[in-house]
Amino acid sequence: MSFFKALHIVKRYANHTALDDVSIEIPEGSIYGLLGPNGAGKTSLIRIINQITAPDSGELIFHSRPLQRADVNRIGYLPEERGLYKKMKVGEQAVYLARLKGLSKQDAVARLKMWFEKFEISSWWNRKVEELSKGMAQKVQFITTVLHEPELLIFDEPFSGFDPINVELLKREIWELRQKGTTIIFSTHNMSSVEEICSHIALINKSHKIIEGPINQIREKYANNTYQLSCRYNPQFKAEEFIGDEFKILSQRIEDNRHDIILQQTNYCPANTLLSRIMPAVDIISYQKIIPSMNDIFIRLVQEQ
């Protein structure tokens, strides 16, 4: 049973179509990466999930029933373009935002005190937002996003503008939330953080969904049977004499007293067989299957389109 589904979503604006028949399925407890270049339609989709705008057609299913207005209280959203009222006091503002998500004033204050202590910003409660540094404001924004303990959290480019320390803090908190069972949608075009964090991804380009699934399966799928072999340098060693018929050398270089050889497997051959052929001739350092990075897959898919 899936947690959240968007089915056949279409959103048109005057001069372009932002989303053209896009469907995604978000498993419960996943960290779901929504990837795509700028202008692909990610933000449009996120706004539709948040019920900020309505799709021209398509369905949204939350817990196996159509998404309802009241569900906004069960969703938390940290937009890419985010801000706070500059002239308002930090605590007061956080309470206001929490109450708009359906928390009572008492609950909001109690939970905020806890979070403020955790993030070591308690002393900022009565300061105005304009006095805060950008990093401080970001912490406050993060807290107000998660305060009402939503079942579904949506982060749009969460790490943009965060300093490295806050990025680490944020990653830790995201992991912690996931441990508690929160499902997280994570929109970004920063691929290294995707590999680190996401369990599932969908790639959107030019208003269409190109691919969707668990991140490991996708990477596996795009791995085209290439392997990297590294051996201690030996001037007599000729790789082509030992690899057999099942392999083809794609590239070979000698560096740092080491051979780095990229092999393409054309017919199946167990790793042990290959290694036993080479072992007498040279000192093996490592042998591994090359799994493409999300970045490679992303670029490849976007360019193919």
């Binding site: 209280n73 937009p79 009222y85």
Partner: peptide, 18 residues
């Protein structure tokens, strides 16, 4: 204008209808 320029509006309309 303030809510739009300081970008708090997107957070707000994820809680209430515009």
């Amino acid at each position: 204008v303030e809510e739009k320029t300081n970008r708090i509006i997107e957070v707000l309309v994820s809680s209430v209808k515009p």
